[in-house]
């Protein structure tokens, strides 16, 4: 075979492998959405779940998932941003930095049930936070941090050094350079990192069973006072998320329509993640254009 033939064959093989990956995703998406879509209705989305009769919905679970995601990001994003800035801009190339990096990475490979139990014994019991969205959000921060730190640091690194030099040359402090030049330039990358980690938060179940709990008390969606125990904004109430609900109806659900609830809820979960991905990408591009004054 001549090199040119090899080249063509190799390209075909690569294309084939890529096609297989795309097919796997299409199969997964198709399977989830086709089996779930018929069960999604306005009623399904807007009624509370039921523990034994058919016809329960996922209203509270859906809201809890979104609320938990927001709360988790509020806690973990600032921490991750600060840490990533440290690692990318301040940290020296020495053993200590290596130690920190290893420590953060170790977090990401911990099994979620271990983090869940840790959160349970420490936050739920010792700190008296109870089964609550807040406990859940803190537990999820453990998973989220490594992903966020790595992706933010990556995007900060990707900004060329000439930008930093330009900032310093203008007499700006290091900090102002980071704030005013590096961060805006790294924004799209940071956003992608957030989306990726948000997907994981949205789908996490094992860690939440012991922290945010697996019951969804009826809440009042007109009560905007976050310290009132009936309010939907109260971070101290137990909250079953969509992924936990899917897990629950599949394992111990006694409702006659458990299969269709699980299928419908999985489809909703995937659709929300889809919307989230494309939405965030659009916003990212828009922000990038605005902030850099690019065309």
């Amino acid at each position: 075979m001549t090199p040119h033939q090899t080249d063509r064959v190799a390209t075909q093989i690569i294309n084939l492998l890529v096609a297989v990956v795309v097919l796997i995703l299409l199969f997964l998406l198709g399977d989830i959405i086709i089996s779930g879509l018929p069960h999604i209705s306005w009623h399904f989305l807007t009624s509370p779940s039921s523990s034994f009769s058919a016809g329960g919905g996922i209203r509270d679970q859906l809201f809890n998932s979104l609320y938990l995601l927001v709360l988790t990001l509020v806690i973990s994003f600032p921490l991750a941003l600060g840490a990533a800035i440290y690692l990318s801009e301040y940290a020296g190339n020495n053993w200590f930095t290596g130690l920190i990096r290893t420590a953060i990475e170790v977090l990401s490979s911990l099994p979620s049930v271990v983090v869940g139990l840790f959160g349970y014994l420490l936050f739920v019991i010792s700190f008296h936070l109870g089964f609550s969205i807040l406990s859940g959000a803190i537990a999820l921060t453990f998973f989220n941090l490594p992903l966020l730190v790595r992706s933010i640091e990556g995007s900060l690194h990707a900004v060329p050094d000439s930008q930093r030099e330009a900032g310093i040359a203008l007499g700006l402090s290091n900090w102002r350079t980071i704030r005013g030049i590096i961060l805006p330039a790294a924004l799209p990358g940071i956003l992608t990192g957030i989306i990726l980690s948000a997907g994981r938060v949205f789908g996490e179940a094992a860690a939440l069973i012991y922290t945010a709990g697996q019951s969804a008390p009826i809440v009042d969606y007109t009560n905007w006072n976050p310290v009132d125990s009936n309010s939907f904004l109260n971070p101290m109430r137990p909250a079953e998320t969509l992924a936990v609900h899917i897990w629950k109806v599949n394992t111990e659900g006694v409702t006659p329509d458990a299969v269709s609830i699980s299928a419908g809820a999985s489809a909703v979960l995937i659709i929300v993640i889809l919307i989230f991905n494309f939405g965030a990408r659009a916003i990212g591009n828009h922000l990038y254009k605005n902030m850099t004054g690019g065309k």
Partner: peptide, 8 residues
């Protein structure tokens, strides 16, 4: 009363 029921 404020009841919280969880598995585990």
């Amino acid at each position: 009363v404020n009841l919280t029921v969880q598995g585990g």
